[in-house]
Each structure stands twice: as structure tokens, then as C-alpha cells.
């Protein structure tokens, strides 16, 4: 048998663990912002303080259940990364039961859909859950304090995480640190992240007439860092990745500005992921 007998240290398990380590600071900040701070101001109960952890635990349990039914093992693919990334982008005041049911349904759908269809699973699951949530109550990314508008925040506060966003996806500064961690230490398509962020920033500055505050769409920035470079649904060749990232960044800027500030990015990522096979074919001979 003609097989290479040597192998480097990389494996799916190590890649997944490194991804999860990168998410930790965001989760901890989310716990601080949407847990500790709100509890301190008597805006949430002690039990509700730990919402972000409940979401993660529910997600992992549901993954184990669906893996059992579909006979898959947890470190054989990137599904653990999927279920740990999705909760970060959920609204702070999400109903846990609705979240659990909609996540379970979406996990079944992605296991049943044919593998030939190329799409970003994380963006799909997030959109699916948000659509279902929206059926029960209007979608809002404001936490209890933001609804009351009781804080006076400057630009630096907003960059450091006090902006409106998902339960653990509001800290742009931490997101950029995570981006560099992934770029240097992991199996991560950094070209897509950097090119999409660059295109997004430029488009937002142009559309919003150089208004810097409009740029702080934390969901979009964190999604371009954590979700857009999904290995499976994106091109693998350098030139294809650059083009993909630029198109994604532009589309994100347009959808975020004109459709929805908080979920435009997920729609953009999903649309771009459908175009990956076409892009790969066009750039095949470059």
C-alpha cells in the first residue's frame, strides 16, 4: 500500500481544542458584561447571571445527543466548534427552551442535508435559531441595562465590549486578540478574516460617511473573525480566499447597513458560502 507513514502533530481534535481555547476570553467577557454587571445592578437574578454557560452546556449536550443518533464521534469533525460558537451570537435575553428546541432542530437538519451542498453551517444554525426566536418575540440584542439606557459610554468603552451585540460577541478588542491567536497558532483561514474585515471597514466608512460609531457593529466584526473563515465552506487556495473575503466584507457592509445591523452578517456569510464552488472553479487554474 502506498501510504505516507509519518505524520505531523496536527489532528482534528487538536484543531478543535485550540479553537475552543480562543473562544474562552469571549465567553468570560460575555459572562462579565451580561452576567456580573447586570447582577450587580439588580437587573438579573443570580441564576440568570450564568446564561452564557447554560447556552454552552445545552449546545454541547444536544450535540452529543444528535451525534449518538447519527453515529458520529465528537472529534471527528468541527461540529463542537459549531455548537460552541453559536451561543456567543445569541441575544442576551434569549429564552433557553426556545434556544434548545431550535438548536436541536437545526442540528438534525444539517445532519440530514446532503454533504454536496456547500454552506456555512454556523451561519445557517444562527439564522435558523434567530428566525424561530423572532416568531415568539421581537428579536432584540439589547440586554437589560442597554434597554434602560443607563450607561454613558464613549468610543473606547464600545470597542472594549460595551457595545450592543450577542451574549458573548460584543468585545471587538478581544475579538482581534483571538484573531491573532488563531492566525498564528491554529488551522485558520486568516486570509478570509483579514480581507473580509478590511472590505467591511472600508465599505462601512464609505456608506456611513466616516461615522466611526457605525463601524462598531460587533456582531459583524466578531462573525467575520469567528464564523466567516469556516474551513469547510470556504475556498482553500490563497487567491480564492482573498476574493471570497473581499466579496464577503462588501456584502456584510451592505446588508448590515441596509437590512439588519445585527444579523446582516450571517445572511452575507451564508450567501457567500453558497458561491464557494463557483469561485473555486473560476480560480482553479490561477
Amino acid at each position: 500500500m502506498n501510504r505516507v507513514y509519518l505524520h505531523n502533530n496536527e489532528s482534528i481534535k487538536k484543531i478543535v481544542i485550540k479553537y475552543l481555547i480562543g473562544l474562552l476570553p469571549l465567553v468570560l467577557y460575555g459572562f462579565y458584561k451580561n452576567g456580573i454587571l447586570l447582577y450587580r445592578d439588580d437587573l438579573v437574578s443570580f441564576v440568570d447571571m450564568f446564561n452564557v454557560f447554560y447556552l454552552l452546556i445545552i449546545s454541547i449536550l444536544l450535540l452529543l445527543i444528535t451525534n449518538f443518533f447519527f453515529k458520529k464521534k465528537i472529534f471527528e469533525n468541527m461540529s463542537l466548534v459549531l455548537v460552541c460558537t453559536v451561543p456567543l451570537f445569541m441575544p442576551p435575553s434569549i429564552n433557553l427552551l426556545v434556544y434548545a428546541i431550535s438548536l436541536f432542530l437545526s442540528l438534525i437538519i444539517i445532519n440530514v442535508l446532503p454533504k454536496k451542498i456547500n454552506y456555512n453551517k454556523i451561519a445557517f444554525v444562527i439564522l435558523f435559531i434567530l428566525i424561530i426566536i423572532n416568531m415568539f418575540e421581537p428579536l432584540s440584542y439589547l440586554n437589560s441595562a442597554e434597554k434602560l439606557n443607563i450607561y454613558a459610554l464613549n468610543f473606547f468603552d464600545l470597542i472594549c465590549g460595551r457595545t450592543i451585540g450577542g451574549i458573548a460577541s460584543s468585545n471587538i478588542l478581544l475579538g482581534i486578540i483571538v484573531l491573532f491567536y488563531y492566525a498564528f497558532f491554529n488551522n485558520y483561514k486568516k486570509v478570509i478574516a483579514f480581507s473580509s474585515l478590511l472590505a467591511f471597514v472600508i465599505i462601512m466608512i464609505l456608506i456611513n460617511n466616516f461615522d466611526i460609531n457605525e463601524l462598531i457593529a460587533s456582531n459583524a466584526i466578531l462573525a467575520l473573525i469567528l464564523i466567516a473563515p469556516d474551513t469547510i465552506s470556504t475556498p482553500a487556495k490563497f487567491q480564492s480566499m482573498v476574493i471570497y473575503g473581499l466579496i464577503l466584507g462588501i456584502l456584510t457592509g451592505l446588508l448590515t447597513s441596509f437590512i439588519s445591523f445585527n444579523i446582516g452578517v450571517f445572511i452575507a456569510i451564508l450567501i457567500c458560502s453558497f458561491t464557494t464552488p463557483i469561485l473555486v472553479k473560476l480560480t482553479e487554474k490561477w
Binding site: 507513514y5 482534528i12 483561514k189 474551513t231 469547510i232 482553500a236 487556495k237
Partner: peptide
């Protein structure tokens, strides 16, 4: 000639990471 301990490789689906390219 290399005489190596038998190895089993657990092959999983490609994740399209692009490391081979």
C-alpha cells in the same frame, strides 16, 4: 527498509483546511 510498529490511521472527512495546498 523501515520496520515500523503497525499504525492505524483514523481517516475522517476532509475539512478543506487547505494545508495540503
Amino acid at each position: 527498509i523501515n520496520i515500523m510498529k503497525k499504525k492505524t490511521f483514523k481517516v475522517v472527512d476532509c475539512i478543506n483546511c487547505g494545508k495540503c495546498i
